[in-house]
C-alpha cells in the first residue's frame, strides 16, 4: 500500500500543493487530475522517490520510499512523459537493454511478442527515430507486459495512442488491478477504467 501524508511541493518560490494526504490500497487506482502546471508530474516524481518533497512523508508498505530504494524500485514501474527510448536503437534493443539494466533479462522472443501485442509488427528492427509518436509510446508501454511490478506510476499513458491501443492499455490496467496491483495515473482523456480514487490538484 502506498500512503502519503502531509505532502508539500514547491517549485521555485511557488507552492504547487500542500498538506496532501491519501492512501492507495491494493487493487485500486488513483487518478491525479488538475490543470496544466498544477503539479501533476511533480507529484508523480515525488511519489516515485525521484524528487524530495519540501515536507511530508511517503511510504510503500510502511517503509519510506527514499530510504530502502532498491526494495521499493523492485515493486515500482514508472513511465514518465519522456520517452526513455534511444533513437538510434531498434524497439527490440531498447526493450531488452533497458530492462537488462533493471535486472530483468528478457529474451528476444518475449520482447518480440510484447511488441506484437501492442501492434508493432514489422517495426521490431527499425531504429526508433523512424517511428511515429504513437508507435514510440507503444514501445514504451511494452514494459508493462515484460516487467512485473506491483505499483504502476504512469504519466499521461494514453497520449498519442489510437482508439485500439487505448482499449488494449485499459484492459491491461484492469488485469493489473484484478491481480492485486495498484496504479497511479495522470490523464486528460476520459477513461474506460473501473471507478477509482481521484486527487485534484
Amino acid at each position: 500500500m502506498l500512503s502519503v501524508s502531509h505532502l508539500t511541493c514547491q517549485r521555485g518560490e511557488r507552492v504547487l500543493f500542500q498538506d496532501l494526504s491519501f492512501e492507495l490500497p491494493e487493487s485500486q487506482w488513483l487518478q491525479i487530475a488538475g490543470a496544466n502546471g498544477a503539479g501533476k508530474t511533480s507529484l508523480l516524481r515525488i511519489l516515485s522517490g525521484l524528487s524530495e518533497p519540501v515536507d511530508g512523508r511517503i511510504t510503500w508498505n510502511g517503509s519510506p520510499v527514499r530510504e530502502d530504494r532498491e526494495a521499493f524500485h523492485a515493486d515500482l514501474l514508472y513511465l514518465g512523459h519522456q520517452g526513455a527510448l534511444k533513437e538510434e536503437l531498434t524497439p527490440l534493443e531498447n526493450l531488452t537493454l533497458s530492462l537488462g539494466m533493471e535486472g530483468f533479462n528478457v529474451s528476444e522472443d518475449a520482447a518480440m511478442q510484447a511488441l506484437h501485442q501492442f501492434g508493432l509488427h514489422g517495426r521490431e528492427h527499425l531504429p526508433v527515430r523512424f517511428l511515429s509518436a504513437g508507435q514510440r509510446r507503444r514501445v514504451l508501454l511494452c514494459r508493462l507486459l515484460l516487467r512485473p511490478a506491483r505499483l504502476w506510476i504512469l504519466d499521461e499513458p494514453f497520449t498519442a495512442l489510437d482508439v485500439h491501443a487505448i482499449g488494449f492499455l485499459s484492459r491491461l490496467i484492469e488485469t493489473h488491478l484484478r491481480e492485486g496491483g495498484s496504479a497511479v495515473l495522470t490523464s486528460h482523456q476520459s477513461m474506460t477504467l473501473p471507478p477509482g480514487l481521484c486527487v485534484t490538484l
Binding site: A71, H73, Q82, E102
Partner: peptide, 13 residues
C-alpha cells in the same frame, strides 16, 4: 534529455 537516466535511477539494481 530522453529520460533514460530517470529509469536508471529508479532501477531496482
Amino acid at each position: 534529455a530522453d529520460g533514460t537516466l530517470e529509469q536508471m535511477a529508479l532501477s531496482p539494481q
